[in-house]
Amino acid sequence: MADLEIHNLTRTFPSGGGVFDISLTVESGEFLVLLGPSGCGKTTLLRLIAGLENPDSGEIKIGGANTTRRESIAMVFQNFALYPHMTVFQNIAFPLKLRHVAREETERRVKESSAKAGLTVDLRRYPRELSGGERQRVALARALVREPQIILMDEALASLDAQLRSSLRLELKTFQRRTGRTFVYVTHDQVEALALADRLVVMRNGRVEQAGRPQEIFDRPQSEFVAAFVGNPPMNFFIAERSPTGGSLAVDGIDFKIKPPDGCPAQIKLGIRPNDLHLDAGEGRVALEVVVESVEFSGATYIVYAKLGNTSIRAELPQCVDTGAHLTLFFDSARVHLFDPSTGRRIDTR
């Protein structure tokens, strides 16, 4: 069952930002992540779903009804937006108090949702006495306490430090599975997006660039923008030309041994992810001769910056190589992404 349906939603701002003609369906119990660079409209979209902004046109249906009903939506804000003058208990109980829920019922539900959110602190304390992670849990408990269908989160981990962020990420995913709520999560951090999402929506300039499962987005980016934005270190891009024989694509005169798809333009954008470049030849892989310019250690792997003729290329390798060394890198032609340079859209070889 669809929990949230968005039809042709448009909201523009005088400054030029906003969202344009967005249509989206979120299934019940789904963890949807909105990903994009800052200013891409992802936060605006979230605020429209929340009802904090009103659309110029288009509609939002929640649970089948044609309104943004505050009853069915809760939100966790970037800085958690805890009420500083209330205790943790009062913070979590605030939505219930507004709904005139009886005392015993309130206490029961506050305890229940703080347990679900993994909150172990004394509920009589004030938010300023808590650590960042504990505040995050209070915000989650407050969102959960009135049992909404949908929980919206706006960069909810961005203000925490890196270590805490990754542990809370895991916790958040488990939390979502356990509670079975629908989540719409906004972030500009692709690592977070790939880790959390059941379905990922990549946005750019107020429009949806691609929506799909994270693996799908990573493996088959539908546009050059998505290919460049998702994945770290970022994808290598080359301008390839059809070789005179027309049988394969060449970059800077170097043959890539890839058959150009039918009816493709004379020039084509060719992308290879750094982790798709290997040192061993494997089976049927294409070889590239490169000269190493510099090497960065990134913990588990080495990022190698090299020159392929006159073109720069980045490879992620399991072992260290010497600067200045001549190296042969191998890649699978099936792992190459092709894009139309004029539209930026993907060209499928198969």
């Binding site: 929340a50 009802g51 904090l52 809760a74 800085n79 937006a81 009420y83 003058h85 407050r142």
Partner: peptide, 29 residues
């Protein structure tokens, strides 16, 4: 007072007057 806090209260179900009385005024006491 961050706008975010007023918005959180609105999402939690409070009317603008209620937000003023129970969030803004106590925070500015």
């Amino acid at each position: 007072i961050p706008l975010e806090i007023e918005e959180a209260a609105w999402i939690d179900g409070a009317s603008p007057l209620r937000i003023f009385l129970t969030i803004d005024l106590p925070m500015a006491r």
